[in-house]
């Protein structure tokens, strides 16, 4: 991204630690993690399994509470932000409710908020069109392919128009072609909506392709190893993927891992 972008801090992770378990059988998932996420930035948390990247995402969303340090989002703690419904989340599995149609799944957050059907059906219809599922809005999840289910999950995460989108390996269970399509769609969505996106992944090319910055994490215990700025290029998927700069970046990221492996 361009250097003249205003770097306003959205999420501040300050000396955060997370220890699971007790009575001597403790596992340190995260140890003294510090970094910031800027507004409208696409940040990836990249690392091997066990580096605590999913835990970190859950701490931001107030689905877990850190055992040390603190997280600030804007001027608030995660709980306040969650209660104001300023998060959208997408998990690795689509996590749809099997008894709800595509449309009803997308409307779930608005329904939970207590909005009326008349208020939100226009929003859900628009989201359904955006993720290209217009013909499938009355389908049940089991009638959809994995990629379509994940589109529903993304539309659901956007339904309350939250400023922050948290994504926990959302594409890692999908085939290469679907993954590629959804990656492009996600970049489009970010361009249109300017959301702050925190994206957990273990795929180096995916992180390099999508991110403005990559937080490289190491495991046992989970720490921030390094933070890399990525200069995103313009061009088609193939152009970017085949460019020298892309290869150079992935090599650099891979180098971070080799350093401690």
């Amino acid at each position: 991204m361009s250097l003249d972008r205003q770097k306003e801090i959205e999420i501040r992770i300050d000396d955060v630690s997370m220890v699971f378990g007790r009575n001597g059988r403790e596992v340190t998932a995260l140890s003294q993690v510090c970094f910031e996420v800027y507004r409208s930035e696409f940040v990836s948390l990249l690392g091997p399994s066990g580096c605590g990247k999913s835990t970190l995402l859950r701490l931001m969303a107030d689905l877990l509470e850190p055992t040390g340090g603190q997280i600030t989002i804007g001027e608030e703690v995660p709980r306040e932000v969650r209660l104001k419904r300023k998060f959208g989340i997408v998990f690795q599995s689509p996590t749809l409710f099997e008894w709800r149609t595509v449309q009803d799944n997308i409307e779930l957050p608005m329904e939970v908020l207590g909005l009326k059907k008349s208020e939100y059906s226009a929003i859900s219809n628009q989201l359904i069109d955006m993720v290209g599922l217009t013909k499938f809005k009355q389908y049940y999840p089991w009638q959809l392919s994995g990629g379509m289910q994940q589109r529903v999950a993304i539309a659901r995460a956007l339904s309350l128009d939250p400023p922050i989108l948290l994504m926990d390996e959302p594409f890692s269970a999908l085939d290469e072609f679907t993954k590629e399509k959804l990656q492009l769609d996600l970049l489009d969505i970010q361009k249109q909506t300017n959301k702050t996106i925190v994206f957990v992944t273990h795929s180096i090319p995916e992180a390099v392709f999508l991110s403005d910055r990559i937080i490289v994490m190491s495991a046992h215990p989970g720490r921030v190893h390094s933070i890399l700025d990525i200069e995103r290029e313009e061009g088609s998927y193939e152009q970017i993927r085949n460019s020298d700069r892309f290869h150079e970046m992935t090599a650099r990221v891979r180098g971070c891992f080799n350093a401690y492996a």
């Binding site: 689905l63 969650r82 599995s93 996590t95 779930l108």
Partner: peptide
């Protein structure tokens, strides 16, 4: 699934809403 519960928690659903929905 745990994620389904996390989702309801993320949207600040009440205990009653989570149970019934």
């Amino acid at each position: 699934k745990p994620e389904q519960e996390e989702l309801m928690r993320l949207y600040a659903a009440s205990v009653w809403t989570t149970y019934t929905k």
